[in-house]
Simulated scan of single mutants.
Amino acid sequence: MNCKFFVVTIIVFVAILAVGEGLGVDQRCRCIETEKRRMGKLIEKVEIFPPNSHCKDTEVIATLKETNQEICLDPAAPWVMKVIEKILAIKSP
């Protein structure tokens, strides 16, 4: 239970920090469907977009290595939560 609360807290914290980056984006959610399958080795970059006035959901968008295709990841999927935790661990001093 504490682990889930910690992950949700981290996601909310990242969402608050990223609010400034949300300016100038589309006026709707980017993710209509999300991917739950594991694909960590295929991912080159992950971006987290917090909820805002145009989209109530936190969106996690990954760019694939070989194709540069962007796909939406399910932020509630356990493996995606681990990816987010690793990103935050690297960014924190």
Rank of each mutant, 00 (worst) to 15 (best):
I16D: 08
E66A: 06
C3N: 14
D26N: 06
K4G: 09
L64C: 03
I16Y: 07
F5W: 15
L73A: 03
V19T: 14
Q27Y: 10
F6Y: 15
D26R: 13
D57H: 14
K4A: 12
L64R: 00
K45V: 10
G40Y: 04
M81N: 08
L17A: 07
C29H: 00
R37H: 08
P51H: 10
E33W: 08
I71S: 02
G22F: 03
G24M: 04
E47L: 10
I32Y: 10
C31L: 08
T58G: 07
M1Y: 11
E33T: 15
W79E: 02
C31A: 08
R38H: 11
M39H: 05
E35C: 06
I84R: 03
G24K: 05
D26H: 08
A77G: 05
E66N: 13
C55N: 02
E66V: 01
T63Y: 04
R38K: 14
C29K: 02
A62Y: 01
K86M: 07
T34G: 02
V25S: 09
P78K: 12
I43N: 04
L42Y: 08
Q69G: 00
Q27P: 07
R28Y: 08
K36H: 06
T9Y: 12
E21V: 13
F49G: 10
W79V: 04
E70H: 04
C29M: 04
I48C: 05
K4Q: 15
R37S: 07
V46K: 04
T67P: 05
V46M: 05
G40F: 05
E35M: 01
I61N: 03
G22N: 12
K65V: 07
V14W: 02
I87Q: 02
F5G: 11
L64K: 06
D26V: 14
V8I: 15
F13Y: 14
P51N: 11
I90R: 14
I71T: 08
G40I: 07
I71D: 00
R30Q: 10
K65Y: 05
N68E: 09
R30F: 11
N68A: 06
I10Q: 13
A76F: 13
E66G: 01
V80P: 05
L64I: 03
A77F: 03
I43K: 03
E59F: 00
V7E: 02
I32S: 10
P93A: 10
V46I: 15
C72K: 00
E85I: 14
K65N: 00
N68P: 04
I43D: 00
P75N: 11
C3D: 12
T67M: 01
I90M: 12
I87A: 03
Q27I: 13
C31I: 05
P75C: 03
P93G: 10
E21F: 10
P93Y: 08
T34M: 03
K82R: 13
I16S: 05
P78W: 08
E47N: 14
I43T: 07
L73Y: 04
L17R: 12
V46S: 03
I84H: 01
K41I: 09
F49V: 09
I16E: 02
N52W: 09
Q69N: 08
I90H: 12
M39Q: 06
C31E: 01
W79L: 00
L42E: 14
R28K: 06
A18W: 09
A62L: 06
E33N: 12
C3L: 14
I16R: 09
L88A: 14
F13G: 15
K45P: 00
V7T: 11
F6V: 14
V7D: 00
A77P: 07
